[in-house]
Design a protein around this nucleic acid. Structure first.
Lengths: 260, 260
DNA sequence: TTCAGTGTTCGGCATCAACGAACATGTTAA
DNA sequence: TTAACATGTTCGTTGATGCCGAACACTGAA
Protein backbone atom coordinates (compact mmCIF):
# COMPACT_ATOMS: atom_id res chain seq x y z
CA UNK A 1 0.00 0.00 0.00
CA UNK A 2 1.63 3.29 -1.12
CA UNK A 3 0.69 5.23 2.01
CA UNK A 4 -2.54 6.85 0.84
CA UNK A 5 -2.15 10.28 2.44
CA UNK A 6 -1.59 11.88 5.83
CA UNK A 7 -4.67 14.08 6.18
CA UNK A 8 -3.45 15.44 9.49
CA UNK A 9 -5.47 13.37 11.90
CA UNK A 10 -6.42 14.40 15.39
CA UNK A 11 -3.90 12.55 17.45
CA UNK A 12 -5.91 11.84 20.57
CA UNK A 13 -8.90 10.63 18.57
CA UNK A 14 -6.64 8.38 16.53
CA UNK A 15 -5.18 7.04 19.75
CA UNK A 16 -8.60 6.28 21.11
CA UNK A 17 -9.59 4.42 17.96
CA UNK A 18 -6.32 2.51 18.07
CA UNK A 19 -7.24 1.45 21.57
CA UNK A 20 -10.58 0.18 20.33
CA UNK A 21 -8.81 -1.81 17.68
CA UNK A 22 -6.40 -3.40 20.13
CA UNK A 23 -9.23 -4.33 22.46
CA UNK A 24 -11.18 -5.79 19.57
CA UNK A 25 -8.25 -7.95 18.53
CA UNK A 26 -7.84 -9.18 22.08
CA UNK A 27 -11.09 -11.10 21.85
CA UNK A 28 -13.33 -12.40 24.57
CA UNK A 29 -10.73 -12.30 27.33
CA UNK A 30 -10.12 -8.57 27.01
CA UNK A 31 -6.90 -6.71 27.72
CA UNK A 32 -5.33 -5.18 30.76
CA UNK A 33 -4.06 -1.63 30.72
CA UNK A 34 -0.46 -2.79 31.05
CA UNK A 35 -0.56 -4.73 27.80
CA UNK A 36 -2.71 -2.16 26.06
CA UNK A 37 -0.58 0.94 26.60
CA UNK A 38 2.60 -0.25 24.87
CA UNK A 39 0.60 -1.72 22.01
CA UNK A 40 -0.80 1.69 21.11
CA UNK A 41 2.44 3.45 21.95
CA UNK A 42 1.26 5.55 24.87
CA UNK A 43 2.13 5.90 28.50
CA UNK A 44 -0.11 3.96 30.85
CA UNK A 45 -1.58 7.11 32.29
CA UNK A 46 -2.51 8.53 28.90
CA UNK A 47 -3.98 5.27 27.70
CA UNK A 48 -5.95 5.05 30.91
CA UNK A 49 -7.49 8.45 30.35
CA UNK A 50 -8.48 7.66 26.78
CA UNK A 51 -9.86 4.26 27.67
CA UNK A 52 -11.81 5.76 30.54
CA UNK A 53 -13.38 8.23 28.17
CA UNK A 54 -14.32 5.49 25.74
CA UNK A 55 -15.81 3.52 28.62
CA UNK A 56 -17.80 6.54 29.79
CA UNK A 57 -19.51 6.56 26.39
CA UNK A 58 -20.06 2.81 26.43
CA UNK A 59 -17.55 2.01 23.72
CA UNK A 60 -15.51 0.01 26.18
CA UNK A 61 -16.62 -2.14 29.04
CA UNK A 62 -14.36 -2.26 32.08
CA UNK A 63 -14.62 -5.57 33.80
CA UNK A 64 -13.66 -5.73 37.47
CA UNK A 65 -11.65 -6.98 39.18
CA UNK A 66 -8.14 -6.59 37.78
CA UNK A 67 -9.65 -4.18 35.30
CA UNK A 68 -9.88 -5.80 31.90
CA UNK A 69 -11.06 -3.81 28.90
CA UNK A 70 -13.56 -5.31 26.49
CA UNK A 71 -15.69 -3.86 23.71
CA UNK A 72 -18.78 -2.07 24.98
CA UNK A 73 -22.43 -2.30 24.06
CA UNK A 74 -22.46 1.12 22.43
CA UNK A 75 -20.65 -0.41 19.48
CA UNK A 76 -23.42 -2.92 19.11
CA UNK A 77 -26.02 -0.17 19.29
CA UNK A 78 -24.33 1.97 16.66
CA UNK A 79 -23.60 -1.04 14.49
CA UNK A 80 -27.25 -1.94 14.57
CA UNK A 81 -28.09 1.59 13.49
CA UNK A 82 -25.79 1.35 10.50
CA UNK A 83 -27.94 -1.46 9.21
CA UNK A 84 -31.15 0.24 10.11
CA UNK A 85 -30.22 3.59 8.63
CA UNK A 86 -29.50 2.14 5.26
CA UNK A 87 -32.77 2.46 3.43
CA UNK A 88 -31.66 -0.65 1.57
CA UNK A 89 -31.31 -2.68 4.73
CA UNK A 90 -34.81 -1.75 5.75
CA UNK A 91 -36.51 -3.03 2.64
CA UNK A 92 -34.12 -5.93 2.20
CA UNK A 93 -34.60 -7.65 5.53
CA UNK A 94 -37.99 -9.27 4.95
CA UNK A 95 -36.88 -10.33 1.50
CA UNK A 96 -33.74 -11.91 2.93
CA UNK A 97 -35.98 -13.86 5.28
CA UNK A 98 -38.07 -15.08 2.39
CA UNK A 99 -35.03 -16.14 0.44
CA UNK A 100 -33.45 -17.96 3.36
CA UNK A 101 -36.66 -19.75 4.09
CA UNK A 102 -37.54 -20.79 0.58
CA UNK A 103 -34.03 -21.94 -0.34
CA UNK A 104 -32.65 -23.04 3.02
CA UNK A 105 -29.43 -21.18 2.24
CA UNK A 106 -27.82 -18.23 3.98
CA UNK A 107 -29.07 -14.96 2.48
CA UNK A 108 -27.04 -11.78 2.77
CA UNK A 109 -27.06 -8.17 1.65
CA UNK A 110 -23.79 -6.55 0.63
CA UNK A 111 -23.39 -2.84 0.05
CA UNK A 112 -21.09 -1.36 -2.56
CA UNK A 113 -18.24 0.24 -0.64
CA UNK A 114 -16.21 1.89 -3.35
CA UNK A 115 -16.10 -1.27 -5.44
CA UNK A 116 -15.82 -3.71 -2.54
CA UNK A 117 -18.66 -5.76 -1.09
CA UNK A 118 -19.48 -5.18 2.58
CA UNK A 119 -22.10 -7.42 4.14
CA UNK A 120 -24.50 -5.55 6.35
CA UNK A 121 -27.30 -8.01 6.91
CA UNK A 122 -27.50 -11.77 7.15
CA UNK A 123 -30.25 -14.31 7.61
CA UNK A 124 -29.22 -17.91 8.14
CA UNK A 125 -31.03 -20.71 6.42
CA UNK A 126 -31.88 -24.08 7.87
CA UNK A 127 -28.84 -25.63 6.24
CA UNK A 128 -26.43 -27.89 8.05
CA UNK A 129 -23.62 -25.42 8.51
CA UNK A 130 -23.66 -21.83 9.62
CA UNK A 131 -21.31 -19.42 7.94
CA UNK A 132 -19.49 -17.09 10.27
CA UNK A 133 -19.77 -14.25 7.80
CA UNK A 134 -18.43 -11.18 9.46
CA UNK A 135 -20.46 -8.05 8.99
CA UNK A 136 -19.05 -4.64 8.20
CA UNK A 137 -15.77 -5.54 6.58
CA UNK A 138 -14.72 -5.59 2.97
CA UNK A 139 -14.80 -9.04 1.40
CA UNK A 140 -13.10 -10.36 -1.69
CA UNK A 141 -14.23 -8.47 -4.78
CA UNK A 142 -13.08 -11.19 -7.17
CA UNK A 143 -14.00 -14.38 -5.34
CA UNK A 144 -17.52 -13.82 -4.07
CA UNK A 145 -20.82 -13.64 -5.88
CA UNK A 146 -21.61 -10.27 -4.40
CA UNK A 147 -18.17 -8.90 -5.21
CA UNK A 148 -18.31 -9.92 -8.84
CA UNK A 149 -21.73 -8.40 -9.25
CA UNK A 150 -20.63 -5.09 -7.77
CA UNK A 151 -17.58 -4.97 -10.01
CA UNK A 152 -19.59 -6.01 -13.05
CA UNK A 153 -21.77 -2.93 -12.73
CA UNK A 154 -19.00 -0.50 -11.79
CA UNK A 155 -17.20 1.79 -14.24
CA UNK A 156 -14.10 0.16 -15.69
CA UNK A 157 -11.61 2.62 -14.13
CA UNK A 158 -12.91 1.71 -10.70
CA UNK A 159 -12.61 -1.97 -11.51
CA UNK A 160 -9.00 -1.48 -12.56
CA UNK A 161 -8.25 0.43 -9.39
CA UNK A 162 -9.77 -2.23 -7.17
CA UNK A 163 -7.84 -4.95 -8.95
CA UNK A 164 -4.70 -2.86 -8.63
CA UNK A 165 -4.93 -2.23 -4.90
CA UNK A 166 -6.47 -5.50 -3.81
CA UNK A 167 -4.82 -7.84 -6.28
CA UNK A 168 -6.33 -11.18 -7.15
CA UNK A 169 -5.11 -13.45 -4.34
CA UNK A 170 -5.70 -17.15 -4.78
CA UNK A 171 -7.87 -18.86 -2.18
CA UNK A 172 -8.69 -22.14 -3.89
CA UNK A 173 -7.89 -23.94 -7.12
CA UNK A 174 -10.85 -22.23 -8.77
CA UNK A 175 -10.05 -18.65 -7.81
CA UNK A 176 -9.76 -16.29 -10.76
CA UNK A 177 -6.28 -14.79 -10.55
CA UNK A 178 -5.83 -13.32 -14.04
CA UNK A 179 -7.19 -9.81 -14.70
CA UNK A 180 -8.25 -10.73 -18.21
CA UNK A 181 -10.09 -13.78 -16.98
CA UNK A 182 -11.84 -11.63 -14.41
CA UNK A 183 -12.89 -9.10 -17.04
CA UNK A 184 -14.38 -11.92 -19.09
CA UNK A 185 -16.17 -13.18 -16.01
CA UNK A 186 -17.63 -9.73 -15.34
CA UNK A 187 -18.88 -9.61 -18.92
CA UNK A 188 -20.57 -12.96 -18.31
CA UNK A 189 -22.16 -11.59 -15.15
CA UNK A 190 -23.64 -8.67 -17.08
CA UNK A 191 -24.95 -11.12 -19.65
CA UNK A 192 -26.80 -13.49 -17.33
CA UNK A 193 -27.64 -10.88 -14.70
CA UNK A 194 -26.16 -12.64 -11.68
CA UNK A 195 -22.74 -13.70 -10.41
CA UNK A 196 -21.57 -17.11 -9.31
CA UNK A 197 -18.80 -18.08 -6.94
CA UNK A 198 -18.10 -21.74 -7.57
CA UNK A 199 -15.77 -22.71 -4.74
CA UNK A 200 -13.56 -19.74 -5.57
CA UNK A 201 -13.20 -18.37 -2.09
CA UNK A 202 -13.65 -21.49 -0.02
CA UNK A 203 -13.64 -25.16 -1.01
CA UNK A 204 -17.06 -26.72 -0.96
CA UNK A 205 -18.88 -23.40 -0.70
CA UNK A 206 -20.84 -21.89 -3.56
CA UNK A 207 -22.61 -18.58 -3.79
CA UNK A 208 -24.78 -16.59 -6.20
CA UNK A 209 -25.31 -12.83 -6.17
CA UNK A 210 -27.57 -10.36 -7.95
CA UNK A 211 -27.35 -6.57 -8.14
CA UNK A 212 -29.54 -3.85 -6.65
CA UNK A 213 -29.64 -0.48 -8.42
CA UNK A 214 -30.76 2.99 -7.50
CA UNK A 215 -32.84 5.25 -9.70
CA UNK A 216 -29.76 6.37 -11.63
CA UNK A 217 -28.68 2.85 -12.45
CA UNK A 218 -25.81 2.87 -9.96
CA UNK A 219 -25.19 -0.47 -8.32
CA UNK A 220 -25.92 0.03 -4.63
CA UNK A 221 -25.02 -3.49 -3.61
CA UNK A 222 -25.86 -7.12 -4.07
CA UNK A 223 -28.02 -9.83 -2.66
CA UNK A 224 -26.36 -13.20 -2.26
CA UNK A 225 -27.17 -16.79 -1.37
CA UNK A 226 -24.49 -19.01 0.09
CA UNK A 227 -24.51 -22.76 0.65
CA UNK A 228 -22.56 -25.97 0.56
CA UNK A 229 -21.96 -27.41 -2.87
CA UNK A 230 -22.74 -30.83 -1.46
CA UNK A 231 -26.25 -29.67 -0.59
CA UNK A 232 -27.09 -28.54 -4.10
CA UNK A 233 -29.41 -30.53 -6.25
CA UNK A 234 -28.05 -31.91 -9.51
CA UNK A 235 -29.32 -28.98 -11.54
CA UNK A 236 -26.69 -26.68 -10.00
CA UNK A 237 -27.08 -23.08 -8.99
CA UNK A 238 -29.37 -22.05 -11.81
CA UNK A 239 -32.61 -22.03 -9.82
CA UNK A 240 -30.97 -20.07 -7.03
CA UNK A 241 -29.62 -17.54 -9.51
CA UNK A 242 -33.12 -16.92 -10.74
CA UNK A 243 -34.38 -16.56 -7.19
CA UNK A 244 -31.80 -13.97 -6.11
CA UNK A 245 -32.29 -12.02 -9.33
CA UNK A 246 -36.00 -11.87 -8.81
CA UNK A 247 -35.56 -10.79 -5.18
CA UNK A 248 -32.93 -8.19 -6.05
CA UNK A 249 -35.17 -6.73 -8.74
CA UNK A 250 -37.97 -6.42 -6.22
CA UNK A 251 -35.67 -4.47 -3.92
CA UNK A 252 -34.53 -2.29 -6.78
CA UNK A 253 -38.12 -1.45 -7.65
CA UNK A 254 -38.93 -0.61 -4.04
CA UNK A 255 -35.86 1.61 -3.69
CA UNK A 256 -36.56 3.42 -6.93
CA UNK A 257 -40.24 3.80 -6.38
CA UNK A 258 -40.53 4.47 -2.66
CA UNK A 259 -39.82 7.94 -1.43
CA UNK A 260 -37.00 8.13 1.11
CA UNK B 1 -29.67 11.95 37.40
CA UNK B 2 -27.39 13.45 40.07
CA UNK B 3 -24.40 13.93 37.78
CA UNK B 4 -22.48 10.74 38.53
CA UNK B 5 -18.92 12.09 38.54
CA UNK B 6 -16.54 14.04 36.32
CA UNK B 7 -13.80 11.48 35.77
CA UNK B 8 -11.71 13.97 33.82
CA UNK B 9 -12.44 12.87 30.29
CA UNK B 10 -10.17 13.44 27.34
CA UNK B 11 -11.87 16.34 25.66
CA UNK B 12 -11.04 15.61 22.04
CA UNK B 13 -12.08 11.98 22.37
CA UNK B 14 -15.32 13.04 23.99
CA UNK B 15 -15.88 15.48 21.15
CA UNK B 16 -15.34 12.75 18.60
CA UNK B 17 -17.82 10.46 20.31
CA UNK B 18 -20.30 13.31 20.52
CA UNK B 19 -19.94 13.68 16.77
CA UNK B 20 -20.72 10.00 16.30
CA UNK B 21 -23.80 10.44 18.42
CA UNK B 22 -25.04 13.41 16.45
CA UNK B 23 -24.50 11.60 13.18
CA UNK B 24 -26.32 8.56 14.53
CA UNK B 25 -29.32 10.63 15.51
CA UNK B 26 -29.40 12.23 12.09
CA UNK B 27 -30.46 8.98 10.51
CA UNK B 28 -30.26 7.83 6.95
CA UNK B 29 -29.89 11.27 5.42
CA UNK B 30 -26.73 12.09 7.32
CA UNK B 31 -25.56 15.50 8.44
CA UNK B 32 -23.55 18.25 6.88
CA UNK B 33 -20.61 19.80 8.66
CA UNK B 34 -22.42 23.10 9.06
CA UNK B 35 -25.21 21.56 11.11
CA UNK B 36 -22.90 19.20 12.94
CA UNK B 37 -20.36 21.67 14.30
CA UNK B 38 -22.75 23.82 16.35
CA UNK B 39 -24.54 20.75 17.66
CA UNK B 40 -21.37 19.46 19.32
CA UNK B 41 -20.22 22.94 20.24
CA UNK B 42 -17.10 23.18 18.14
CA UNK B 43 -15.81 25.40 15.40
CA UNK B 44 -16.31 24.06 11.91
CA UNK B 45 -12.63 23.52 11.39
CA UNK B 46 -12.21 21.55 14.60
CA UNK B 47 -15.25 19.41 13.93
CA UNK B 48 -13.97 18.78 10.43
CA UNK B 49 -10.64 17.50 11.73
CA UNK B 50 -12.30 15.16 14.22
CA UNK B 51 -14.82 13.88 11.72
CA UNK B 52 -12.08 13.32 9.19
CA UNK B 53 -10.18 11.24 11.68
CA UNK B 54 -13.26 9.17 12.46
CA UNK B 55 -13.78 8.69 8.75
CA UNK B 56 -10.19 7.59 8.25
CA UNK B 57 -10.84 4.75 10.68
CA UNK B 58 -14.14 3.86 9.05
CA UNK B 59 -16.34 5.08 11.88
CA UNK B 60 -17.86 7.67 9.62
CA UNK B 61 -18.66 7.54 5.96
CA UNK B 62 -18.31 10.75 4.00
CA UNK B 63 -20.75 10.85 1.15
CA UNK B 64 -19.93 13.09 -1.76
CA UNK B 65 -20.95 15.47 -3.09
CA UNK B 66 -21.89 18.21 -0.60
CA UNK B 67 -20.12 16.12 1.99
CA UNK B 68 -22.64 14.45 4.23
CA UNK B 69 -21.53 12.43 7.23
CA UNK B 70 -23.08 9.05 7.95
CA UNK B 71 -22.16 6.18 10.22
CA UNK B 72 -19.37 4.00 8.84
CA UNK B 73 -19.04 0.29 8.41
CA UNK B 74 -16.40 -0.01 11.10
CA UNK B 75 -19.17 0.38 13.66
CA UNK B 76 -20.94 -2.57 12.14
CA UNK B 77 -17.77 -4.61 12.20
CA UNK B 78 -17.03 -3.85 15.84
CA UNK B 79 -20.65 -4.32 16.81
CA UNK B 80 -20.61 -7.72 15.22
CA UNK B 81 -17.51 -8.55 17.24
CA UNK B 82 -19.21 -7.60 20.47
CA UNK B 83 -21.72 -10.35 19.83
CA UNK B 84 -19.12 -12.79 18.65
CA UNK B 85 -16.74 -12.18 21.52
CA UNK B 86 -19.32 -12.99 24.09
CA UNK B 87 -18.89 -16.66 24.72
CA UNK B 88 -22.60 -16.64 25.50
CA UNK B 89 -23.53 -15.29 22.09
CA UNK B 90 -21.58 -18.05 20.42
CA UNK B 91 -23.39 -20.93 22.07
CA UNK B 92 -26.74 -19.17 22.14
CA UNK B 93 -27.14 -18.45 18.43
CA UNK B 94 -28.06 -21.95 17.23
CA UNK B 95 -30.38 -22.35 20.18
CA UNK B 96 -32.09 -19.07 19.35
CA UNK B 97 -32.63 -20.38 15.85
CA UNK B 98 -34.21 -23.54 17.20
CA UNK B 99 -36.49 -21.58 19.47
CA UNK B 100 -37.58 -19.17 16.77
CA UNK B 101 -38.27 -22.00 14.40
CA UNK B 102 -40.17 -24.25 16.78
CA UNK B 103 -42.30 -21.48 18.28
CA UNK B 104 -42.53 -19.01 15.39
CA UNK B 105 -41.81 -16.17 17.82
CA UNK B 106 -38.87 -13.77 17.97
CA UNK B 107 -36.08 -15.22 20.10
CA UNK B 108 -33.51 -12.96 21.72
CA UNK B 109 -30.55 -13.10 24.06
CA UNK B 110 -30.11 -10.34 26.61
CA UNK B 111 -26.96 -9.84 28.66
CA UNK B 112 -26.94 -8.61 32.22
CA UNK B 113 -25.50 -5.09 32.11
CA UNK B 114 -25.32 -4.12 35.75
CA UNK B 115 -28.91 -5.12 36.38
CA UNK B 116 -30.30 -3.97 33.05
CA UNK B 117 -31.09 -6.21 30.07
CA UNK B 118 -29.20 -5.49 26.86
CA UNK B 119 -30.17 -7.50 23.81
CA UNK B 120 -27.19 -8.70 21.82
CA UNK B 121 -28.66 -11.25 19.48
CA UNK B 122 -31.98 -11.70 17.77
CA UNK B 123 -33.57 -14.27 15.52
CA UNK B 124 -36.94 -13.44 14.03
CA UNK B 125 -39.69 -16.01 13.88
CA UNK B 126 -42.10 -16.53 11.05
CA UNK B 127 -44.72 -14.49 12.87
CA UNK B 128 -46.76 -11.81 11.23
CA UNK B 129 -44.97 -8.81 12.70
CA UNK B 130 -41.31 -8.10 13.06
CA UNK B 131 -40.18 -6.38 16.21
CA UNK B 132 -37.70 -3.62 15.68
CA UNK B 133 -35.81 -4.58 18.79
CA UNK B 134 -32.74 -2.42 18.97
CA UNK B 135 -29.56 -4.20 19.89
CA UNK B 136 -27.01 -2.91 22.33
CA UNK B 137 -29.09 -0.59 24.45
CA UNK B 138 -30.53 -0.99 27.91
CA UNK B 139 -34.17 -2.00 27.92
CA UNK B 140 -36.76 -1.72 30.66
CA UNK B 141 -35.75 -3.80 33.67
CA UNK B 142 -39.26 -3.89 35.11
CA UNK B 143 -41.42 -4.32 32.00
CA UNK B 144 -39.71 -7.02 29.97
CA UNK B 145 -39.40 -10.75 30.54
CA UNK B 146 -35.63 -10.60 30.28
CA UNK B 147 -35.39 -7.62 32.62
CA UNK B 148 -37.48 -9.22 35.34
CA UNK B 149 -35.44 -12.39 35.14
CA UNK B 150 -32.15 -10.53 35.48
CA UNK B 151 -33.45 -8.58 38.45
CA UNK B 152 -34.92 -11.68 40.04
CA UNK B 153 -31.51 -13.28 40.22
CA UNK B 154 -29.57 -10.15 41.22
CA UNK B 155 -28.67 -9.24 44.82
CA UNK B 156 -31.32 -7.09 46.46
CA UNK B 157 -29.11 -3.98 46.86
CA UNK B 158 -28.55 -3.93 43.11
CA UNK B 159 -32.28 -4.31 42.51
CA UNK B 160 -32.96 -1.35 44.78
CA UNK B 161 -30.34 0.73 43.02
CA UNK B 162 -31.76 -0.06 39.58
CA UNK B 163 -35.27 0.81 40.73
CA UNK B 164 -33.91 3.99 42.25
CA UNK B 165 -32.11 5.27 39.20
CA UNK B 166 -34.44 3.98 36.51
CA UNK B 167 -37.72 4.36 38.29
CA UNK B 168 -40.76 2.33 37.29
CA UNK B 169 -42.21 4.32 34.40
CA UNK B 170 -45.62 3.28 33.16
CA UNK B 171 -45.89 2.14 29.55
CA UNK B 172 -49.29 0.44 29.51
CA UNK B 173 -52.15 -0.23 31.90
CA UNK B 174 -50.44 -3.42 33.02
CA UNK B 175 -47.02 -1.99 33.82
CA UNK B 176 -45.86 -2.65 37.35
CA UNK B 177 -45.18 0.74 38.87
CA UNK B 178 -45.04 -0.05 42.58
CA UNK B 179 -41.73 -1.23 44.06
CA UNK B 180 -43.44 -3.66 46.40
CA UNK B 181 -45.45 -5.17 43.58
CA UNK B 182 -42.26 -5.57 41.60
CA UNK B 183 -40.53 -7.34 44.49
CA UNK B 184 -43.47 -9.74 44.70
CA UNK B 185 -43.23 -10.30 40.99
CA UNK B 186 -39.52 -11.10 41.23
CA UNK B 187 -40.29 -13.60 43.98
CA UNK B 188 -42.79 -15.23 41.63
CA UNK B 189 -40.16 -15.36 38.88
CA UNK B 190 -37.77 -17.20 41.17
CA UNK B 191 -40.55 -19.60 42.04
CA UNK B 192 -41.58 -20.62 38.53
CA UNK B 193 -38.16 -20.16 36.96
CA UNK B 194 -39.14 -17.78 34.19
CA UNK B 195 -40.45 -14.24 33.81
CA UNK B 196 -43.52 -13.06 31.95
CA UNK B 197 -44.27 -9.69 30.42
CA UNK B 198 -47.99 -9.61 29.82
CA UNK B 199 -48.49 -6.44 27.75
CA UNK B 200 -46.52 -4.46 30.32
CA UNK B 201 -44.21 -2.67 27.92
CA UNK B 202 -46.33 -2.58 24.81
CA UNK B 203 -50.01 -3.27 24.27
CA UNK B 204 -50.67 -6.53 22.52
CA UNK B 205 -47.14 -7.82 22.97
CA UNK B 206 -46.23 -10.59 25.38
CA UNK B 207 -42.86 -12.02 26.26
CA UNK B 208 -41.32 -14.77 28.39
CA UNK B 209 -37.73 -14.90 29.62
CA UNK B 210 -35.52 -17.44 31.36
CA UNK B 211 -32.13 -16.99 33.04
CA UNK B 212 -28.67 -18.17 32.07
CA UNK B 213 -26.11 -18.65 34.84
CA UNK B 214 -22.35 -18.99 35.01
CA UNK B 215 -20.52 -21.57 37.10
CA UNK B 216 -20.80 -19.37 40.20
CA UNK B 217 -24.54 -19.02 39.92
CA UNK B 218 -24.37 -15.42 38.71
CA UNK B 219 -27.06 -14.52 36.21
CA UNK B 220 -25.26 -13.71 32.98
CA UNK B 221 -28.37 -12.82 31.05
CA UNK B 222 -31.67 -14.10 29.81
CA UNK B 223 -33.24 -15.77 26.84
CA UNK B 224 -36.58 -14.42 25.75
CA UNK B 225 -39.43 -15.12 23.37
CA UNK B 226 -41.60 -12.29 22.12
CA UNK B 227 -44.84 -12.42 20.20
CA UNK B 228 -48.25 -10.95 19.72
CA UNK B 229 -50.83 -11.83 22.31
CA UNK B 230 -53.34 -12.31 19.53
CA UNK B 231 -51.23 -15.10 18.08
CA UNK B 232 -51.14 -17.13 21.26
CA UNK B 233 -53.14 -20.30 21.64
CA UNK B 234 -55.76 -20.42 24.36
CA UNK B 235 -53.41 -22.08 26.83
CA UNK B 236 -51.42 -18.87 27.24
CA UNK B 237 -47.68 -18.50 27.60
CA UNK B 238 -47.12 -21.63 29.68
CA UNK B 239 -45.74 -23.83 26.91
CA UNK B 240 -43.41 -21.07 25.78
CA UNK B 241 -42.17 -20.56 29.32
CA UNK B 242 -41.23 -24.21 29.48
CA UNK B 243 -39.46 -23.97 26.13
CA UNK B 244 -37.31 -20.95 27.03
CA UNK B 245 -36.45 -22.46 30.39
CA UNK B 246 -35.30 -25.66 28.78
CA UNK B 247 -33.25 -23.76 26.20
CA UNK B 248 -31.73 -21.46 28.80
CA UNK B 249 -30.73 -24.40 30.93
CA UNK B 250 -29.00 -25.98 27.97
CA UNK B 251 -26.99 -22.81 27.46
CA UNK B 252 -26.16 -22.67 31.15
CA UNK B 253 -24.86 -26.23 31.04
CA UNK B 254 -22.73 -25.50 27.98
CA UNK B 255 -21.28 -22.33 29.51
CA UNK B 256 -20.49 -24.06 32.78
CA UNK B 257 -19.08 -27.15 31.17
CA UNK B 258 -17.12 -25.68 28.30
CA UNK B 259 -13.56 -24.60 28.92
CA UNK B 260 -12.32 -21.24 27.62
C1' DT C 1 5.41 -10.56 55.55
C1' DT C 2 7.48 -9.67 51.19
C1' DC C 3 7.28 -9.20 46.55
C1' DA C 4 5.94 -8.53 41.86
C1' DG C 5 2.40 -7.20 39.31
C1' DT C 6 -1.27 -4.19 38.60
C1' DG C 7 -3.89 0.65 37.94
C1' DT C 8 -3.96 5.31 39.76
C1' DT C 9 -2.36 9.98 41.03
C1' DC C 10 0.48 14.00 40.46
C1' DG C 11 3.21 18.09 38.60
C1' DG C 12 5.57 19.97 34.48
C1' DC C 13 6.47 20.70 29.78
C1' DA C 14 5.68 21.04 24.99
C1' DT C 15 2.43 19.68 21.96
C1' DC C 16 -1.46 20.45 19.44
C1' DA C 17 -6.45 20.83 19.60
C1' DA C 18 -9.35 24.53 19.10
C1' DC C 19 -10.44 28.85 17.12
C1' DG C 20 -11.86 32.41 13.51
C1' DA C 21 -10.97 34.97 9.57
C1' DA C 22 -9.89 34.50 4.78
C1' DC C 23 -10.12 31.44 0.91
C1' DA C 24 -11.98 28.14 -2.55
C1' DT C 25 -15.80 25.69 -4.03
C1' DG C 26 -20.37 24.76 -6.18
C1' DT C 27 -25.16 25.56 -5.84
C1' DT C 28 -29.16 28.81 -6.30
C1' DA C 29 -31.50 33.13 -7.96
C1' DA C 30 -32.07 36.80 -10.63
C1' DT D 1 -24.49 35.03 -17.51
C1' DT D 2 -23.93 37.07 -13.37
C1' DA D 3 -24.38 37.62 -8.62
C1' DA D 4 -25.33 36.22 -4.10
C1' DC D 5 -25.17 32.76 -0.87
C1' DA D 6 -24.02 28.64 1.11
C1' DT D 7 -20.96 25.23 1.92
C1' DG D 8 -16.25 22.97 3.37
C1' DT D 9 -11.31 23.89 3.47
C1' DT D 10 -6.99 26.28 4.58
C1' DC D 11 -3.98 28.84 7.53
C1' DG D 12 -1.41 31.16 11.54
C1' DT D 13 -1.86 32.04 16.41
C1' DT D 14 -2.53 30.92 21.14
C1' DG D 15 -3.80 28.98 25.15
C1' DA D 16 -5.47 25.00 26.97
C1' DT D 17 -4.47 20.21 27.65
C1' DG D 18 -2.98 15.82 26.24
C1' DC D 19 1.02 13.38 27.18
C1' DC D 20 4.63 11.73 29.87
C1' DG D 21 7.23 9.58 33.86
C1' DA D 22 8.11 8.92 38.46
C1' DA D 23 6.01 8.12 42.82
C1' DC D 24 2.02 6.18 45.03
C1' DA D 25 -1.70 2.71 46.27
C1' DC D 26 -3.63 -1.56 45.72
C1' DT D 27 -4.10 -6.55 45.01
C1' DG D 28 -2.85 -11.32 45.06
C1' DA D 29 0.56 -14.83 45.55
C1' DA D 30 4.66 -16.99 47.65
Amino acid sequence: MPNTEPPSLVKSVAHALDILDVVARAGDSGVTLAELAPRVGMAKSSASASARTLAHYGFLHIEMPGPRFKLGFALLRYGDQVTRQTSLGQVALPILHELAESTGLTARLALNDDGYPVFVERVDGHGSVRFHATLGQRESPHATGAGKVILAYSPTPLVRRVIGEHGLPRYTDSTITEPDALMDELERVRLVGFGVDNEEESDGVVCVGAPVFDHLGTCLGALSLTGLKADLASDGVGPYGAAVMEAAQRITRTVQGGRR
